[in-house]
Design a protein around this nucleic acid. Structure first.
Length: 681
RNA sequence: GCCCGAGUGGCGGAAUUGGCAGACGCAACGGACUUAAAAUCCGUUGUCCGCAAGGGCGUGUGGGUUCGAGUCCCACCUCGGGCACCA
């Protein structure tokens, strides 16, 4: 593998780093905290200072960014990133050239994977040059280090081995002096005896005008002082980088740029937009982007001077498309423009956006950035695209891996023991090697996807829908299993039979609910209206369909087990409530039964049911009586019973009395409507 | 290493936000129906002691606060996710 410098297109997203952070204020509470936290980390704001060092031998300026200006007096060397342009400028033609450049080339070939980085030994090479520290005039050697990043800060790092662990390791390895400038209280640091950098607070020493001060407290004065003296200034740095949108492939929106020998890079004029992908390209394996080989696409004339010119053949990252598709949804047939601002402003922003957590830092930052830019150029009147965000958990399933044949479909795993939905200790059907199993997000490449068609055929789409949301809350990771599908199937079948059978006993449409009802019917209505309240809360409070379905099952139990005759009007009311609250989950099923109950209009046009809080109110409460925190009896009470009556009744309870005998009552806690606890000793 | 999230029966998971732990469902077991099986219906099902009535224990581990803790506080363990040489 070799690294190559390429010339590519970027969106200047770094200009929006602070705006993207500030926007979180309006999202907090409406977006998952975890997503906001991930974005904050991704943007990576850090406060510090720019300090201007100078190369002693050449006079070149070398600014550094540091979050620890309090350690400036302890700088004993400087590290440049291997990609830093200054290296070649200084070293070429000197006797250091071959030594330095070969080390730099080696560093630039090192892998950038997280794992490799973590294991990598720190390495550095001296350039033969020195830099002058502006704060005290000290000359320190200028090194190139494999851990310095060109893409962060200025690509140059002032090194303070006494107070930074990386610098410490390098200094020890290459015998670079260590200078303590933050002294530990009580147990002073000795540079020769230190085994790691001291990064905690302390008192500044050997630090000129700041000697004796607490380093944390002095920080803002130090930054102000740097500015006054012209050594640097306070700055804020962000880890967020500009968005590289160039992709060397066919599929994607063409980047609308034309290269002219005389005029340079010229944007395609608006009336010629959009640039469309040619349809007659030849895909040949190993030949890169087919657009580059498509002469009809590449050759064009310069929009400015009319001379023959060439089109950009890179296409845009597909995240560009997903950053504004929701705006196009508001105006999908517009032939003139991407969208009409008025239409978009009328509908947007999205009230409820739903997507997987894997989009936390990519799509969801890109789309926010796009919306801010469109806002700033006056195309939309809002800055944030998604008011509320809900992240569903990923669906996972066991995947199997054979060293020889890579990822295997479950069918290709033989001789294993079945443990739930996983096959343990299986062998590869092709070669007999042991197969490794891993619980992971379902994906085509790992052959652990589930084909829902088979389930649709056996159970119908509504059963599958019901099953998928009936077990776990949707924001959690879920392990795919078909073990529970029978439960959903049974629930719908029973409900179907119940509704059809109940039609004969049901009141006609529009029948009034009688004022006077017997206890059975009152209890049933109460349960039904409580069901509406609790299902509504469950869905509105985070799409908790699992508990919503449980509430429906409870109501259906009570309907089936009702002792005594159910009033025809109540029968209709209860069944219609069940159908309505289930209709978002099983739409076809609910609609069909709704029609069979004699309704002319759609169940979805009938509105969400309204709970009558009077009807839902309990007539009697059964509350537990505890003695020293253990339940020893129960009381049946009117909901408005007063405290002294409850306390007396509790003490009189036979099951409770037994535990009070021979004991002294220390305290009686009565929580109306909840419980009674008697503390004895 | 740092930052989130989670840990509850055989399993997925509930728990009115500090107040009856185990809702609802799966699986299992027993029964009814059937020539039989499937389907369906009824029942049992945290665990230990007990014939029973009843009682002990129990929400990852250890401590704490409280009349009362799955829920709050402190320490730790395990799992999942994110970030990771960011100066």
């Amino acid at each position: 593998m070799a690294q190559k410098d390429m010339s590519q297109w970027f969106f200047k997203m770094s200009d929006y780093a602070q705006r993207l952070l500030d926007g979180h204020k309006s999202l907090r509470g409406n977006w998952p905290d975890s997503v906001i936290a991930m974005q904050e980390e991704w943007i990576g704001r850090s406060e510090g200072a720019r300090v201007d060092f100078t190369v002693k031998e050449s006079g070149d300026a070398v600014p550094v960014f540091t979050t620890r200006p309090d350690t400036l007096f302890g700088v004993t060397f400087m590290s440049l990133a291997p990609e830093h342009p200054l290296i070649e400028k200084l070293v070429l033609g000197t006797e250091q050239e071959s030594r330095v450049m070969s080390a730099v080339r080696k560093m630039r070939q090192q892998s950038t994977s997280a794992k490799d980085i973590a294991e990598r030994e720190k390495e550095a090479v001296w350039t033969g040059f020195h830099v002058i520290n502006p704060v005290n005039g000290t000359e320190v050697p200028l090194w190139v280090a494999n851990f310095a990043l060109m893409t962060y800060g200025t690509g140059a790092v002032m090194a303070v081995p006494a107070h930074d662990q990386r610098d410490f390791e390098v200094a020890r390895k290459y015998d670079i002096p260590i200078e303590v400038v933050i002294q530990r209280d009580g147990d002073p640091l000795d540079p020769d005896a230190m085994t790691e950098a001291y990064v905690d607070p302390g008192i500044m020493v050997n630090s000129g005008p700041f000697d004796g001060r607490n380093n944390r407290e002095a920080m803002s004065d130090i930054i102000a002082w740097l500015g006054e003296k012209g050594f640097g200034e306070g700055t804020i740095n962000y880890r967020l980088r500009d968005w590289l949108i160039s992709r060397q492939r066919y599929w994607g929106a063409p980047i609308p740029i034309i290269y002219c020998e005389d005029c340079g890079a010229v944007p395609v004029p608006e009336e010629a937009l959009p640039v469309r992908l040619p349809t007659d390209v030849v895909f040949r394996e190993g030949h890169g982007n087919p657009l580059a080989a498509c002469d009809a696409f590449v050759n064009c004339s310069c929009p400015t001077c009319g001379k023959p010119a060439k089109r950009e053949t890179d296409t845009m990252d597909t995240f560009v498309d997903s950053s504004w598709y929701f705006l196009r949804y508001c105006d999908p047939k517009n032939e003139q423009r991407p969208f009409d601002s008025e239409k978009v402003n009328a509908l947007m922003p999205v009230d409820q956006y739903i997507g997987g957590i894997e989009h936390a830092t990519m799509h969801l930052i890109y789309a926010r950035f796009f919306t801010m830019v469109l806002h700033d150029i006056g195309l939309v009147d809002f800055e944030e695209p998604f008011k509320n965000l809900f992240c569903q958990g990923m669906v996972c399933k066991t995947a199997y891996y054979c060293e020889e044949h890579k990822w295997l479909h479950e069918d290709q795993v033989v001789d294993g023991k079945r443990e739930g939905d996983t096959i343990r200790d299986g062998k590869c059907a092709h070669c007999g090697l042991s197969v490794r199993s891993e619980m992971t997000k379902i994906s085509k490449s790992k052959f652990n996807v589930v084909d829902p068609d088979q389930m649709f055929d056996s159970f119908g789409t509504d059963t599958v829908r019901l099953y998928m949301v009936s077990d776990a809350p949707p924001d959690k990771m879920q392990i795919w299993s078909e073990a529970g599908i029978n439960g959903a199937w049974r629930m719908l079948n029973r409900l179907w039979d119940l509704v059809l059978a109940a039609r004969a006993d049901m009141a006609a449409l529009g029948t009034e609910i009688p004022q006077e009802l017997d206890p059975t019917n009152r209890a049933l209505r109460r349960k039904a209206h409580q069901c509406i309240m609790r299902v509504t809360d469950a869905i509105e409070g985070g799409f908790q369909f699992n508990t919503a379905i449980a509430r429906c099952n409870e109501l259906l139990h009570q309907l089936r087990n009702a002792k005594g005759e159910i009033h025809p009007a109540i029968l209709r009311e209860v069944i219609e409530i069940v159908l309505k609250v289930l209709s978002p989950i099983v739409p076809h099923f609910a609609e069909e039964l709704w029609e069979r109950l004699g309704h002319g209009e759609s169940i979805f046009a009938s509105g969400w049911p309204k709970a009558d809080t009077e009807v839902a109110k309990e007539e009697q409460l059964v509350i537990p009586v505890q003695v020293n925190g253990k339940v020893r009896g129960r009381l049946t009470l009117a909901p408005d019973a007063d405290q002294t009556a409850i306390e007396a009744a509790a003490k009189a309870e036979p099951g409770v009395q037994k535990w009070l005998e021979g004991k002294t009552v220390r305290k009686v806690i009565v929580i109306p409507g909840r419980l009674v606890n008697i503390a004895v000793s």
